[in-house]
Design a protein around this nucleic acid. Structure first.
Lengths: 262, 262
DNA sequence: CAGGATAAGTCCTCAAGAGGAGTTGACGAC
DNA sequence: GTCGTCAACTCCTCTTGAGGACTTATCCTG
């Protein structure tokens, strides 16, 4: 015999699954639900709290409790690291299996706004260790935020680090006033004689910190994806490290691994 | 002015961050905290509930509330799709940037137990669409569970699908009694004339369903990573689809993308 | 007609308390 | 000494009640 609030949560969850409560619908008020299920308001709040944590409903202070819509997802693909010509090789099989979300959302890069800021910072012990430079060495830190046109909360926040000494031969890379990294990081690094060989991406999912909730405008119950991207050049040096914070409910990542046999 | 429970949550969070409350430590009892912060037990429970959702603490009925240890992470790397010889090419740069967790945990494949079961199921509309077969066509479904030796809850659950007709030429693939897929899926498919060309992996993070909480023994506040792996052969056919459910707090995924220039 | 005040409806905070259920260690019976 | 019982401690459930804060629509004022 489950507890009272669990039974209520189950009942509501079932109504949502069955489609009786459609996305966007407002649930009855807490007092109404309390009467309907013959219990008190705190017990109702406990039940709805479960569904919030599951990401099924969303509470809005003063407005009501609503069934959440499936959020718009943004697809990231590791093919973005490749040159354009290579991307064109994407075949029908890929489109069948991964293109669906992109088609559904109908979003293109033009619907997004990018913001960037540059700063010179000393290397932390962790970053210094990865780059193989002394702790405190000067790094160029670029902070990116991506948002939908006409939305305030960004879709992601990314901080990328380069060792200043490695890129000093091209002062344009340090100019704040120009479009950040036209042609992409790979091309930019090429202009200072660095040839990127491969990118290693590591990531995990965890609940957001309060700061991340604030910055990304996350509803309760969603997690963030933490992605660390490490760029390695043809001489096996770590030349770029980037930490990206992505909202878990709005992000879908795709990676293609080509298999080799020699 | 933040609310009372927020201030309490902030105070406890700060104690944890500062290391005054070390991982594994038991927090004072709810009644003691209520007295300490001059409030009621429900308010204390609300405050600690925030930290549970953030994954910082864990409540154990009858025992107490404990500061969570950083969970053991299992690293998945897309290099696992490659032949062994290729893996050996992993260089110092990779080890610097991604090998740390593997070294820290000290876990090898020998510490893990694999369970598998086979079943023949009709293709759902979604799977049929991906494979390009009629809906209801017979699929071979393999269900995997991975667990630590001497732990009951599995680390992950994976369901993999193959089209029966494609692999029918090797009846050994259907034998339940043998070690599942010796040599790996890539080698096994080779025995039926299928040459895997690439693997496309798509994933997202979301809160777990109650069933997943049950099956994977997830503490409150952690999310699951849903990974869909699609194997494509050299003739651009989708030959394998696998859905993997991973606990977000115990999993770290790594992908290496080799950049090309032609 | 525009703008602000108001009222109703909503979810949120906080309190105090009773009883229940899981865990642990101490104690006593055997 | 071993085992089971029991008491103490823990977190969990649920209740009742009061007031606060946010949102929206209505109504009144200018």
């Amino acid at each position: 015999m489950a507890t009272k609030y669990e039974r209520i949560a189950d009942a509501l969850r079932e109504e949502i699954r069955a489609g009786q409560l459609k996305p966007g619908t407002r649930l009855p008020a807490e007092t109404a639900l309390a009467e309907q299920y013959d219990t008190s308001v705190p017990t109702i709040r406990q039940a709805t709290g479960v569904l919030v944590a599951e990401g099924l409903i969303e509470k809005q202070h003063g407005r009501g409790t609503f069934v959440r819509k499936a959020p718009t997802r943004v697809v990231r693909d590791n093919a973005r690291h490749q040159w354009e010509k290579d991307r064109a090789r994407a075949s029908e099989a890929e489109r069948l299996t991964t293109g669906a979300t992109e088609r559904d959302t109908g979003l293109t890069i033009n619907d997004l706004v990018f913001e960037a800021s540059y700063e010179q910072v000393p290397a932390t012990a962790e970053l210094a260790g990865m780059f193989g430079v002394p702790e405190g060495a000067t790094l160029l830190q670029r902070t990116y935020r991506t948002r939908y046109r006409e939305e305030r909360t960004p879709l992601n926040r990314s901080q990328s680090y380069l060792v200043l000494d490695m890129i000093a031969s091209n002062p344009d890379l340090l100019r704040e006033d120009q479009e950040p990294w036209p042609g992409g990081t790979q091309n930019q690094l090429w202009t200072v004689g660095i040839e990127l060989d491969r990118v290693v991406e590591t990531f995990q999912a965890r609940p957001p910190t309060p700061e991340e909730v604030e910055e990304l405008g996350l509803p309760a119950g969603v997690s963030v994806i933490i992605l660390r991207k490490v760029g390695i050049d043809t001489t096996d040096r770590v030349v770029e490290v980037a930490d990206v914070v992505l909202p878990g409910d709005r992000t879908e990542l795709t990676f293609t691994t080509k298999l080799t046999r020699w």
